[in-house]
Design a protein around this nucleic acid. Sequence first.
DNA 1: CGATTGGATGAAGGATTCTTCAGGTTTGGA
DNA 2: TCCAAACCTGAAGAATCCTTCATCCAATCG
Lengths: 212, 212
Amino acid sequence: MSTNTITAFEPRKTPVQARSTVTVKAISEATIQVLLTHGADRLTTTRVAGRAGVSVGTLYQYYPNKRSLLFAVFEDHLNKVSRTVELACEDARDKALSEMIRQVVEAYVDVKMQRADISVALYKVAPDVGGPALVKQTVQRLRKAIGSMLLTASDVKLSPDKFAIDLMLSAMAGAMRSALEAGASPAMFRKMREHLVLLCQSYMAAAMAKGA
Amino acid sequence: MSTNTITAFEPRKTPVQARSTVTVKAISEATIQVLLTHGADRLTTTRVAGRAGVSVGTLYQYYPNKRSLLFAVFEDHLNKVSRTVELACEDARDKALSEMIRQVVEAYVDVKMQRADISVALYKVAPDVGGPALVKQTVQRLRKAIGSMLLTASDVKLSPDKFAIDLMLSAMAGAMRSALEAGASPAMFRKMREHLVLLCQSYMAAAMAKGA
DNA sequence: CGATTGGATGAAGGATTCTTCAGGTTTGGA
DNA sequence: TCCAAACCTGAAGAATCCTTCATCCAATCG
């Protein structure tokens, strides 16, 4: 089960005093720093602890193992992405289909770009950190938000296909990943964004037409 | 450079006698076997050698390091994919745009499915094995094949946009990856295939119209 | 039939890193 | 003030693997 995959990374202890709250946050941020400056292979528990200004022992008091460090970072990142897209969905309610798609796609592209460095770093470690399980959760969340948004479309009245939404999401993610990993330039990204909107719009239109 | 990334994995010695040719092939196949049965983390050089029926020393005579084992497998896989898609492109020359896209997409989906197990296993190790570099090569190769095919389209006469082709490829790859990692059922894949054709067709049509 | 090159062996070296835990320090409430 | 709980420390244990190299076997050639 995906739940199992995830519980293995859950925190060991929850901070009680203010002191440890600070510590935990420091560790979490140190993880990102080390990930970005040293890369995934040179990410050791000792190094993270050092950067956080605590000892390894302390780290292990809150994180059960090394992978849980990355897992936490991954989780945060995906949450941020989810929240952003969900907001876009809220905002696009009752608009026309193509406008909805535009907002969602642009929101997604923009969040990923904002944290392009983290995104790229996470692509590398995802497989070792229960990435697929987390991604699955995220997709469910987004599917729900998008599906519910689509129901309010002003121009089309069709039950949106779960399958189509998933396909759109994975296609979008794939395209972004490719661009991010290639280190595309800002200009490139602007073009990407436009084209991705086009891609999703034309597909969704076609998919909904087909479903009818 | 990506070339550098790749040269670090190049073979150490090339087989001369028939004996060693057999050995190298055995090692390469053992790598796949171990990868599929034990998983990437439990893939050790000793284990691969054992499964191949040779000693570790022999393995290191032909492969400079552990990662080069996976690299070789990855390279083979991508070559197979490339060849298959290239053939589809040849076959689709002079046809209508939508038919071209159909053939390419279906060819891609089908090869990946044929080796679904290997595909999934490789997703996991790709980052540690110079995956991005290899993928970049593959994309170039496919972009060329597809671009040249599009020039012969019977219904549209437009210079195909490099950018659009890349986007289509990465979207396609993303969708496939997602489905493969989720362990989708055969029925699911048939639907995927259909929809992916639709997605690519509608996007390419839109992109080419826009370019004009 | 030597000699030379190719091929194979596998114990041992070497390097890393994760993770624990026994013991010291700080905090906050009674 | 005093104590129990919360926190922190970091040396050392323990487990893995990768990779080498000195040495021996097999094949090919003149």
